[in-house]
């Protein structure tokens, strides 16, 4: 018997598979020069994104980082609109103005990716303050990397969230590296979660390759936030399979290390094994899901390629309030 529902298992597995297929495809397209400006591939980190977002309400707010395709897809944005944004086409989530690093839509509770390492938690904290002021029954989630979590502004924001009991959840998408820097080399005190004690909030280090564990901790943090008890930090240990950015030829980690994570701790494989042994999914259903996400990503690429570039005359749209001709 499983305490997971079949529906949750299927949608979570599909969500992780979609991210993997999307990222592997986008990586190739980027190397071929079809996606301008490069991408930050999140392959390997699927369980963090899907575990967190599956514990949230669609109206909850997220603010993310430069590596945000997985969060965005897990929030329910379509592969079509995300791929089109990577191609900087007018049909993209940000109407082709943002590209890979600036996916977002305020109306759907996505306060964006951004290029400033460590900015996501501050943005999410502001959103949490807005939620509290309005009395909305929502929470705000700020993603940050293991590199970004060593920025001062991140802890400034956490401190304010603690004293004001803001409905904030901080997710450390801890993929072990900040570009070429291994997390342990630059993290004072070892376990980042221990810092939570000094700031006066619950803080957990968890297995970020286990989508169920991520979901459970996020759900608990959400309950606490909704009850007015304040923020929580979740340090989810994960791993990125590709380089920091597309095409990187890294010499800073061994092939053995990468292979170990891929073969022994892959979030998709681990969840398939669990869901299968608990009778939640069959081999043929797994194969059907793989087929399904492959088709969805192929369709997304086709859609992105055929979509038009933004019209030059629309350059001021979303830039000003109408004074200069935008709106």
């Amino acid at each position: 018997m499983s305490n997971l529902s079949k529906e949750w298992a299927h949608s979570s597995l599909r969500g992780m598979m979609l991210i993997r297929e999307f990222e592997e495809t986008a990586d190739k397209l980027s190397l071929r020069g079809k996606i301008p400006g490069g991408i930050h591939n999140s392959s390997g980190q699927e369980a963090v994104a899907v575990g967190v977002l599956s514990a949230l309400d669609p109206l909850d707010v997220i603010a993310t980082t430069h590596r945000s395709h997985h969060h965005t897809l897990a929030k329910g944005f379509s592969a079509r609109e995300v791929m089109a944004e990577l191609f900087t086409k007018s049909t993209g989530v940000s109407r082709g103005r943002g590209g890979s690093m600036h996916l977002g839509d305020f109306h759907r509770g996505h306060f964006g990716g951004n290029g400033i390492v460590g900015a996501g938690v501050g943005i999410a904290m502001g959103a949490a303050l807005g939620i509290q002021q309005r009395g909305d029954a929502k929470v705000s989630v700020g993603f940050v990397g293991d590199g970004g979590v060593n920025t001062g502004r991140t802890w400034e924001a956490i401190n304010m969230a603690v004293i004001w009991k803001l409905p904030l959840i901080v997710i450390i998408d801890n993929n072990q590296y900040a570009v070429e820097t291994f997390v342990d080399r630059v993290t004072g005190g070892g376990d980042i979660a221990k810092r939570g004690e000094g700031f006066g909030l619950p803080s957990y280090t968890i297995n970020g390759q286990d989508v169920v564990e991520v979901n459970e901790y996020t759900a608990k943090a959400r309950q606490r936030a909704l009850a007015g008890e304040g923020p929580t930090i979740i340090n989810a240990l994960t791993y990125r399979y590709y380089g920091h950015n597309v095409g990187e030829k890294g010499q800073y980690r061994t092939q053995d290390e990468i292979l170990d994570w891929k073969t022994n701790r892959d979030p998709i494989d681990l969840f398939i094994a669990r869901a299968t042994s608990e009778g939640l999914i069959t081999d043929s259903e797994v194969a059907a899901l793989r087929d399904d996400v492959k088709k969805e990503v192929e369709d997304a690429v086709d859609f992105a390629e055929k979509s038009p570039q933004p019209d030059l005359n629309s350059i001021l749209v979303d830039v000003d309030s109408g004074l200069l001709g935008g709106k």
Partner: peptide, 10 residues
């Protein structure tokens, strides 16, 4: 075998 589009100065 192709020339990868990496970086800005390609």
């Amino acid at each position: 075998i192709f020339v990868p589009a990496v970086g800005m100065a390609m």
